[in-house]
Design a protein around this nucleic acid. Sequence first.
RNA 1: GGAGAGAUGGCCGAGAGGUCGAAGGCACUCCCCUGCUAAGGGAGCAUAGGAUCAAAAGUUCUAUCGAGGGUUCGAAUCCCUCUCUCUCCGCCA
Length: 428
Amino acid sequence: MLDIQLLRTDLDRVVARLATRGFQFDATQFRALEEERKRIQVRAQTLQAERNQASKAIGQAKAKDEDTTALMQDVSRINEALKEDEAELLDVQTRLEGLLLDFPNLPHASVPVGKSEVDNVEVRRVGTPRVFDFPIKDHVNLGESLGLLDFETASKLSGARFSILKGELSHLHRALSQFMLDTHTRDHGYTEMYVPYVVNAETLRGTWQLPKFEADLFSVPRGEQGKHYLIPTAEVPLTNVVRDAILKEDDLPLRLTAHTPCFRSEAGSYGKDVRGLIRQHQFDKVELVQIVHPELSYAALEELTGHAEKILQLLELPYRVIVLCTGDMGAGSCKTYDIEVWLPAQNTYREISSCSNCEAFQARRMQARFRNKKGKPELVHTLNGSGVAVGRALVAILENYQNVDGTIEVPSVLRPYMGGTAVIGRKR
RNA sequence: GGAGAGAUGGCCGAGAGGUCGAAGGCACUCCCCUGCUAAGGGAGCAUAGGAUCAAAAGUUCUAUCGAGGGUUCGAAUCCCUCUCUCUCCGCCA
């Protein structure tokens, strides 16, 4: 959520900057609504003040045993008028809030302006794609021929876009998440968290998934309590840890990590990536979240992106980092780096992590604050990034580490997590 | 699942229809005092929004005592619904 003050004082600039991310906004309509709000609010508040004063006078008169009939009639009249104003005010405010809730975040000045993913800018490339001297297979082929990847049975259980991993492949999947968590907690200073996978609507509102993206979520009916939702990413529970909290300045930065499944309905995305593990309704991810002092959030973004990159470096997977242009960024982000891993079967880099600085956008919604030097509560900045998507890392390992006989080499950092296994799929 | 108790400011905790945005304490900030090992005195100290203002400061108004509704001229205080926490019993990986 944007700062309403900013809209009141600097609307034209806000509209112009939001236009760079393809967000059209009717400033005239907003101004008119604001005018209306102001008019009604001033009137209503004046009436309230009158009423409060009169009521106080009644109390004082009664204490002195005086007659209060005239005063009470006054108040009744005020209340009549007030009732209408309050209803109008509520209506205007609801409409304004509705507009405000739809606003995406303002892009940071360093973000390239563009319309879509073709305008994203590559920042760096790390590692060199391996040259194969045999015809390579994609991860689906590799997994299925080894008998370790089973989409058919998964679709019997749950439908399309679910998968079953077996034996050594399932073990490798587990090894990956363990390795990521260990690296982030041991080397990068994150605190490991175990968090709920089912959250309430308030929590999703805090991080922006509601109300706009409800269609992408799996929900769980809960009788009188309404609906709960399966988390689409651990960003949701991790970031909301600080919702409605006032932290000590010394507590910052908070670095939190969790390994969780993520559930995405993504009804609209069929037709793309239908094959394989790339786009699933359920996948595992190790998430990184930082809650930081506003002045340090851009340094933290570089740092957090580096933490995610470190995983790929240790796994010796080639990747590149791109900065998303204004038109391709998520709504809550001021600046986003995507990390894309090399997939030889697709002959391209594919997203494996997305690292964003949301500045105070989520914090304002969540009322997540810290007490600053002056003793005043001030909004924190929030950042999140995948460190990294486990399923996609598995895909990358299958494809990059494949041997001519269809077996898979285990990256050396993962071998301790695999009981020393060096190759997957070797016949015994 | 059953029975009971509770939810007040950063924290603890009083208040039980009127002058309560809320006593007192702790913490914090500033000042004074004091040569000392969690010493004393004074002042300040909730959040959000509105108006005024070029802006800040200041002034002023409104809302907020778990959330939402109701009663009333007036609600932290009374009534209803919900949520959460605690205690006891039951069940359970």
